[in-house]
Design a protein around this nucleic acid. Structure first.
Lengths: 340, 340
DNA sequence: GAAAATAGATGAATCGATTCAGGTCCGTTT
DNA sequence: AAACGGACCTGAATCGATTCATCTATTTTC
């Protein structure tokens, strides 16, 4: 067991009785090396407990085996699922995912991008908060591929993988209308997050196209956590009963769960009888809520997998043209919106 | 912005009219360099858009600025919180956290440890699944510090940061007994996970010490997800009514949420009137369940922060003695166990 | 059997930041 | 005025894997 710390490729070469070049070839292109050498080198590696020094490899070859992923909200299971998808795909390529959570803080966003740049990661996946086109352009100038996640790249300058939030918003409200609801409130914010706007826009389309007369009001929140949902619910409960909506469309599931808690537990309201609730994302807790939550499902793992695949392709071919991948969302109906 | 890809420390030196050594000193020990040089080098860095090459730095200095974190279950918000705590502390030290999710798969566990070894991370935090003492010992031989997270290091060979699960288990069941419950079921598994055993052991202690006659049965699950909780709930519901327990202690909150869903939604049981439920971890969704869930809180962020701090200290001083940090859990009472 | 082609191995040069032994300059001491 | 010390700089050597121009041995071709 007396393994000393530094075992370099030179030690392996010495032990196997070959040159360092040969050891490197065994490691990287075993088919260009005689079977005999492969065996001897492999044995030496085994015996010495040699582990490749990634720093040296990266320095010389200029190729990294990590990809960075900057995530907007690490507490949101939706993003965890996306990361998970990216990880799955990455491990298939022998790539590791460096993960940074920005918590909607632009300073942290910058911090992580700087860090990834120093690490010369092969590529960066990012679910951006504000507008960081300029920063990303600099990354690209350094030869680091970049893919936007959960965000459509309007000007087409970067590849992106997202879900059509407008369609999702429309689906949600069409479903509520079909279930007989007429006084609908959209709960979400802040509106400088692109997806929030899109989901509301979709909701408006559905309301207008329905033929029926639909009240669609907006209840703005400052973020999209469970706590914000609880607060929004309290505000709704504070109104005179006649002004209550009969359905809520929450911009994400965390908000929806907060609303559910506030209305059912504190407000003693019946869901879906008094009020229907639908969320967005379909995180795994949506199904597990005591009133199982209807939601607009995003193919979260698929989003992560796809984004990772694209970023690797772009890293391999720097001249590739950015492409926008847009998935369609899917309506998942559970108890919280069952027709009365 | 004609910024060319490779800007090295040499380019900066040239531009600033100093030697590479001076540039390096400005970067690493600015106080040993004249103010004039600092200014000129800083300006050159700015103008050229220079970014340090971490690979070269790591190769020469042998010091990495990343720490690896291998997590048992990336879908569990509890671990996300722990990671979050580690990240917070890390970013304070200019360190990044490489994050790998093993999903209770020993093969993935090995994969990530190999990867971290190649990267020569400064240290490794790990919430281990099985027994990986041997593997960790090898890491240590390579000079990589290691800290166990959420797991007490029985033999004291590694530092660890955990919560006293036995005390937590006792707290949970004492609380149930105080609330008047007598027929208690412990729901959890598999029992080769250390924490599960400990929590059950604590539960047994509470039952025995109570003086009253307490039924304490065990409902075993094969994992600890929401789905497993639902399944366990269904099994309980399938029994004749007289054999139902009047309280459930779930080994974690995911299980508890599943139980809640199964019993309330499908079983039409009233919580806490018919049956009380308490979980473990106090994840943020526990409070947001439609019947807010009582739970045993672990200081998750603090665990992450502490573990990171310790791993950095051990990396700085390889001869330091492993130490066990054990936090005390805390009872959080919500509606799901209110006395009748 | 000589020339040419092929397979395989070699080892010095290289990537970029850090380190450190040695140098320069200038003000202090004695 | 010589010796000394402190403040700063300098630049070659170094880390370890990869690459590639060269070399050697073997096989193929005519």
């Amino acid at each position: 067991m007396g393994a000393r710390l530094p075992v370099s490729i030179r030690d392996v070469a010495l032990r196997a009785g070959v040159s360092v070049g040969t050891v490197s070839n065994v490691l990287n292109r075993p088919d260009e090396v005689s079977a005999d050498s492969v065996v001897r080198v492999s044995r030496a590696i085994e015996e010495l407990g040699y582990v490749r020094n990634d720093a040296a490899r990266k320095l010389r070859a200029g190729v990294s085996t990590t990809v960075g992923f900057v995530v907007l909200d690490g507490q949101n299971p939706f993003y965890n699922d996306v990361v998970r998808g990216a990880e799955d795909e990455a491990s298939r390529h022998g790539i590791a995912v460096l993960y940074g959570n920005t918590d909607e803080d632009p300073a942290r966003e910058r911090l992580y991008l700087d860090l990834f740049e120093e690490q010369q990661v092969r590529g960066v996946l990012i679910a951006p908060y504000g507008d960081i086109t300029a920063r990303l352009q600099k990354l690209r100038a350094r030869g680091i591929a970049t893919v936007l996640v959960d965000r459509f790249s309007g000007d087409g300058r970067f590849s992106s993988v997202s879900v059509d939030s407008v369609v999702g918003g429309r689906m949600a409200v069409e479903h509520l209308i079909e279930a007989g609801r007429r006084r609908i409130a959209f709960v979400g914010g802040p509106f400088d997050i692109r997806q929030v706007n899109d989901r509301l826009a979709g909701a408006r389309v559905a309301a207008e196209d329905s033929g029926a007369h639909i009240d669609l009001e907006v209840v703005a929140t400052s973020a999209m956590t469970v706590e914000d949902g609880v607060a929004a619910g309290a505000r709704i409960l504070a109104r005179p009963r006649r002004e209550w909506p009969d359905a809520l469309f929450a911009a994400n599931d965390l908000l929806a769960l907060g609303l559910l808690q506030s209305l059912v537990v504190e407000g003693r309201m019946l869901v879906p009888d008094d009020i229907a609730i639908i969320g967005f994302d379909d995180i795994s807790f949506a199904a597990a809520a005591a009133v199982p939550l209807s939601s607009i499902r995003q193919p979260s793992r698929m989003i992560g997998r796809t984004a990772l695949r694209i970023v690797l392709e772009e890293a391999a071919d720097p001249d590739s043209i950015p492409r926008q991948t847009v998935f369609q969302p899917e309506l998942v109906v559970r108890a919280s919106t069952r027709p009365r």
